[in-house]
Design a protein around this nucleic acid. Structure first.
Lengths: 163, 163
DNA sequence: CCCACATAATTGACGTTGTCAATCATAATT
DNA sequence: AATTATGATTGACAACGTCAATTATGTGGG
């Protein structure tokens, strides 16, 4: 053994995040929200997917499960709009969750075309563990922000996400 | 004719953004940065891609072009790290831009393995128009934020994007 | 100097995601 | 009743993400 200072493989969970050369931090791109959001989200969803992997979930499937576990009784069309996914993607996500016994398609009494996605007991239970995992990932992603800053960010994102 | 009030096809540019039912705004998901960021970014990049489409660019290719046009002389590896893309994706992006005569691969005197991406005159010119278009898209995406809020958002995103 | 190992660019494979058109069942409108 | 609109579904295809292998070059230890 004794492979101390060598670093061919980082003996660490997750992928090492390469540092950014200082000269890049002065480029015009770092003033563009579009770019900053893309990079921030790439980092964030990498963390989230990592903590969700042990539960066999990704951010996508987690979002669907979370909505199913909310008391809002979302239809698939509503999920598509809310999560900004194509209806066909919702079909496969719900299919996968349904096959795992986490959610089921309940009939909508108002509209027989529509199906309301509801959680099973197992789904509710898994969601609780997943939500805890996501909170951990969020903690990691937002490590550089203090409490008030995180609240600020939430408020600002909510505004542009639901404008 | 006379299909005035009918709305099979929205006579409007871009895709209409479906409204979100109020009851969803109380779900747990809207407190999670991960979700808010995903939705905000989905909206934002849709806008950005729309304004870039006439220039035959997407946010991806625009980012590479923008970095090429900065005075930072980025190598492909550095672009991969900075933009958080796989090196192989940078290859195709640069290939496409190079074939259009917008950038070229310059040799790196320090390291003959490495190639520095630089803009052509046409690349510089297109970048200026593209940057203006992106500013327009940003204006649209951030319409619900005032000036100080936009600055706040930039600062917060910069922190988490380069932590 | 030589050797072993690390790194930059590239290619190719392969699974995942995004987008679209078509279909069927049911609603809504006229 | 007929027409039109909408929800779910399927299938096709392009775009994207990820990984392994290859080639050329750099780097550090003997």
């Amino acid at each position: 053994m004794a492979e101390s200072t060598q670093h061919g493989e980082d003996p660490w969970e997750g992928a090492a995040i390469p540092a950014v050369p200082d000269r890049f931090l002065a480029s015009d791109l770092v003033d563009e929200i579009e770019f900053l959001a893309a990079r921030a989200r790439s980092l964030g969803s990498a963390h989230a997917n990592a903590v969700l992997a042990p539960l066999d979930l990704k951010v996508r499937s987690y979002s669907v499960l979370a909505m199913a576990c909310s008391d809002t009784g979302p239809s698939q069309r509503e999920l598509a709009d809310f999560l900004r996914l194509d209806p066909s993607q919702i079909v496969s996500l719900v299919d996968a969750l349904e096959q795992r016994g986490l959610v089921f398609r309940a009939p909508d009494p108002r509209d027989r075309r529509s199906k309301v996605i509801r959680p099973t007991a197992a789904g509710t239970e898994l969601h609780q563990r997943a939500a805890a995992a996501v909170r951990v990932a969020e903690e990691t992603s937002l490590a550089s922000l203090d409490g008030p800053e995180r609240d600020q960010l939430r408020v600002l994102l909510r505004k542009i996400a639901f404008s």
